[in-house]
Computed example of a mutant assay.
Amino acid sequence: MQNLPPILATYFEATNAQNVDLYASCFSENAKVKDQKEIIQGRQNIANWNREVNEQYNSASAVKSWIQTSDGVEVITEVAGTFPGSPIELTFRFKLQDNRITELEID
């Protein structure tokens, strides 16, 4: 996927396939996700949250661009699903360590 770091290519592949197990495997054990002012911490909690999001919004993400930043990777996406205003453009800010996502902030 546009030469993304491999773990992020897997992340977006899992997102679009709505494969919760593959999605969760992208995260470190104590990872943290911030989405819509909610913070989800821990791989199992992130898996549960992802399952709920999939059921509620049936969304898919198309990567538009990405850049390496001083503390991670920023990915601009177009997200479409069953939510008001779909599709929308969102920024995903990832922090990575040991080929896993340790933090993700979605704006």
Rank of each mutant, 00 (worst) to 15 (best):
N3C: 12
N3E: 15
L4M: 10
L8E: 01
A9N: 02
T10Q: 09
T10G: 03
T10V: 05
Y11I: 01
Y11R: 00
E13I: 08
A14T: 05
A17S: 14
N19D: 12
N19P: 03
N19F: 05
D21W: 06
L22A: 13
Y23A: 00
Y23G: 00
C26F: 07
S28M: 10
E29P: 11
N30Q: 07
A31M: 01
K32N: 12
K32G: 07
V33P: 00
V33K: 00
V33T: 01
K34N: 07
Q36C: 14
E38K: 12
E38P: 05
E38F: 05
I39P: 08
I40L: 02
I40P: 00
Q41D: 09
Q41M: 14
R43M: 08
R43F: 07
Q44S: 14
N45H: 11
N45P: 05
N45Q: 13
I46F: 09
A47D: 07
A47H: 05
A47E: 06
N48Q: 10
W49V: 00
N50I: 11
R51K: 15
E52Y: 07
E52G: 08
Q56Y: 04
Y57R: 00
Y57I: 00
N58Y: 04
N58P: 03
S59Q: 06
S59P: 00
S59L: 03
V63I: 15
K64A: 10
S65V: 06
W66Q: 02
W66A: 01
I67W: 09
Q68Y: 15
S70C: 15
S70D: 15
V73W: 13
E74Y: 13
T77I: 04
E78Y: 07
E78D: 12
V79C: 06
V79Q: 02
T82M: 03
F83D: 01
F83Q: 02
P84F: 03
P84V: 04
S86Q: 04
P87K: 07
P87S: 07
I88G: 11
L90A: 09
L90M: 10
F92G: 03
R93A: 10
R93D: 08
F94T: 05
F94V: 07
K95C: 12
K95I: 09
L96P: 13
Q97S: 15
D98A: 12
D98S: 10
D98R: 11
N99I: 04
N99W: 08
N99V: 03
T102K: 08
E103K: 03
E103V: 02
E105K: 06
I106C: 05
I106E: 02
I106D: 05
I106L: 08
D107F: 08
